[in-house]
């Protein structure tokens, strides 16, 4: 890795480990301090409840000037997350500001699981299904959680 690890990343990592976000486990890879293994617990009263969703988070070279790269590894049935696990979140794209942190980003992901938004889909059929028949979509999401989101 070119360049030392900026102090900010050390600070954020220390804080994440000493005061974890409730329901989220995020820890750096032992060989790469910019790569985090993340497990997000599905929030209560959602179709993702009792699921454990694996994610990967990477801090690019010019972080925090550019946003972290974040992706679901575990399959999830969600209108704002595509088959490759990519997440439709404006704060991870054009709405990123360096005042946001790994912590705030993960909280936002948790929020997205609690509040799927099929009106702003990531070009996938899940959003269409969600809008056509929400009850059925929620049942499918629950089933996927049972099948795939068990660590």
């Amino acid at each position: 890795m070119a360049g030392g690890l900026p102090k900010r990343i050390l600070r954020e990592t220390e804080k994440l480990l000493s005061e974890p976000v409730p329901g989220i486990d995020a820890r750096p890879d032992e060989n790469n301090a910019r790569y985090f293994h993340v497990i997000v617990n599905g929030p209560k009263d959602t179709p993702f409840e009792s699921g454990k969703f694996k994610m990967e988070l990477f801090l690019p070279e010019d972080y925090p000037m550019t946003p972290p790269k974040l992706r679901f590894i575990t399959k999830i049935y969600h209108p704002n997350i595509d088959q490759l696990g990519r997440i439709c979140l404006d704060t991870l794209k054009d709405k990123w500001t360096p005042a946001l942190t790994i912590r705030t980003v993960l909280l936002t992901v948790q929020g997205l699981l609690s509040a799927p938004n099929p009106d702003d889909p990531l070009a996938n059929d899940v959003a269409a299904a969600w809008k056509a028949n929400e009850t059925k979509a929620i049942a499918t999401a629950r089933q996927w959680t049972r099948i795939y989101a068990q660590v």
């Binding site: 704060t91 997205l112 509040a115």
Partner: peptide, 11 residues
């Protein structure tokens, strides 16, 4: 920033 209200401001 339109962050969901679940965000814990203090933390």
């Amino acid at each position: 920033l339109d962050i969901k209200s679940s965000v814990d401001v203090k933390s």
